[in-house]
Nucleic acid binder design. Structure first.
Lengths: 197, 197
DNA sequence: GTCAATATCGACACCAAGTGTCAAATATGG
DNA sequence: CCATATTTGACACTTGGTGTCGATATTGAC
């Protein structure tokens, strides 16, 4: 009991500081831009030293990109929960509902997505994060089905699905969110016909 | 005549220094690793100052990532040269021959690809470069066909094709290049069936 | 060949992102 | 309350990248 409480204490304060830090940082990013905001400014605004900032986040980029760790967990879990006889393309469409909800519900998520797209260097890390996410999902696909472990197909199909998600998201932004993201995604994913289950 | 010669002089010496720099740098990358090699070391090995290095390349990453500018030009040109009535998926497969030849012919290209994959930060820039390349091609597709300019389809299809290329390349590396890259790409692209022309 | 305009280079100073270290402060468990 | 482990801040340092400025070639015209 004691152990749980003290462990929880440490963990909790750490989580609180982390969210406070992202909060403060995101405000600065929106006000002054991502590149123009220094880690010193973020640390000062949150009332701690720069060195301590780097004990909470490995890098300035990690402040925002780290958010997608949760998305990966949830998507992988969601994929594992899909019935094995469901066509893979349909399974992927279903687990993208997580992303669709994340993007279209939260107004905070939109601010982050805007910030990420405002800096090529940050966007690059974003793409790398999603590349790893795709690798995770492809790996899960391999474990669940009987693809050869060295077959390019799982990676290709998962990557193609993400291309649809990205394309739909971009079209959604371009329409100033007048269109429905889920519909755009359906449209994009329907334009590719998957052969294998 | 004079103008052409003098202009050519400047341009040529610049090109020579650039290739010399990439040569020297790549050797250092292979020997000591990308991250462990500093710009000072590269500049010293090439016999010029660090400041001058940054007059030839905007960044250390640009040394390698800049190589793909030529790939983009050639792919866009190649796409424009495809017949308009050819199915888009087939056109994309054809222009990927440029990439296939680049990857599988040159032994220098392989060393660069290995270096790029050795550093997450560098690989992130690589992905961002290819993201822009895909945007270029999708834009070209829009101009050549009658897709609505805000439709997600061109981006989705181009992105899906690149997912196949990436997956094939990865499978190729995993097989230690015993399999044929072009065949792997055919295999990957055949597992997605495209509906629209 | 000489000379003025121009581009290039090196040296120096500077900024921002990270990282290692160590001593002080603070929380934890008994 | 006390011994111990953790967190923190201060400091110094490395690396990538940029602005500036005087010295040094290069170029084009005469």
């Amino acid at each position: 009991m004691n152990e749980v409480k003290t462990e929880g204490m440490r963990e909790r304060t750490r989580r609180i500081v982390r969210t406070e830090l992202t909060q403060v940082a995101q405000d600065l990013f929106v006000k002054n831009g991502y590149e123009a905001t220094t880690v010193d400014q973020i640390a000062a605004a949150a009332g701690l030293s720069r060195r301590t900032f780097f004990r909470y986040f490995a890098s300035k980029e990690d402040l925002l990109i780290g958010k997608y760790d949760l998305l990966e967990e949830r998507m992988v879990e969601s994929l594992k929960a899909r019935p094995l006889d469901e066509p893979l393309w349909d399974s992927l469409r279903r687990i993208f509902d997580i992303g669709v909800n994340y993007f279209s519900n939260t107004e905070r998520a939109e601010a982050i997505e805007n910030t990420v797209r405002s800096s090529p260097a940050l966007y690059a890390r974003y793409l790398e994060r999603f590349s790893r996410l795709q690798a995770s999902l492809a790996e899960t696909v391999c474990q669940r089905s009987n693809y050869a472990p060295d077959s390019p197909e799982p990676r290709a199909i998962v990557g193609a699905a993400f291309a649809c998600l990205t394309a739909a998201q971009e079209a959604w932004y371009k329409s100033n969110k007048t269109k429905d993201l889920a519909t755009l995604l359906d449209e994009a994913m329907a334009s590719l016909r998957i052969q294998s289950g």
